[in-house]
Amino acid sequence: MIAIIDYGLGNLKSIYNALSKLGIPARVTSDKKIIEQAERVILPGVGAFAQGMRNLKDLGLIPVIRQVVKENKHFLGICLGLQLLFSESEEHGRHKGLDIIKGKVKKFTQKLKIPHMGWNAVHYSPLTTYHLPLFRGVPDGSYFYFVHSYYVVPKDKNIILATTDYSEKFVSVVGRGNLFGVQFHPERSGPLGLRILKNFSSY
């Protein structure tokens, strides 16, 4: 069973619907025990960083997230769920994140329209094949649906699994151990997005 962490932000139903369509058992939950017991965990989210951290804190979910990542449970952060894993964000001031991945969350420069909204190509890092469990069957340069104004900058460049171009090159996929994070929305990215969720549930 996959636990989809519900902390009051984002379109959780679409992830649940996508997993249902794939026949993968899932639960939308903010119950620590269910998250602990789940085989895999998804941290979704759309919205503001500070609000996200506040909600996680109010619901007492920060320790359980740290714990399941520490146990090397299969974990996928999506969009804000990816960003929250980082040390800090510069979204409306400076805010501390979960600090599970060292690095920052930065805003796009104003050169292009913000949010970065729509379908953009994801290019695998040439130095690693670590993306493979998640991206099996997905050709390099495939398009996924993005909607965000901030992007992650990890300290450890080895965890960068893919990048995307939007005026500048930004990190769109990170991963280490069984921990993965994607900036785009697999649940809104058609058949290839569903493929990623399927891979996540079965690798």
């Binding site: 679409s14 619907n17 996508a18 369509k21 649940e187 809104r188 997005g193 569903l194």
Partner: peptide
């Protein structure tokens, strides 16, 4: 629609 269509 949301049960069947996985684009925005």
């Amino acid at each position: 629609t949301a049960e069947r269509v996985f684009i925005p």
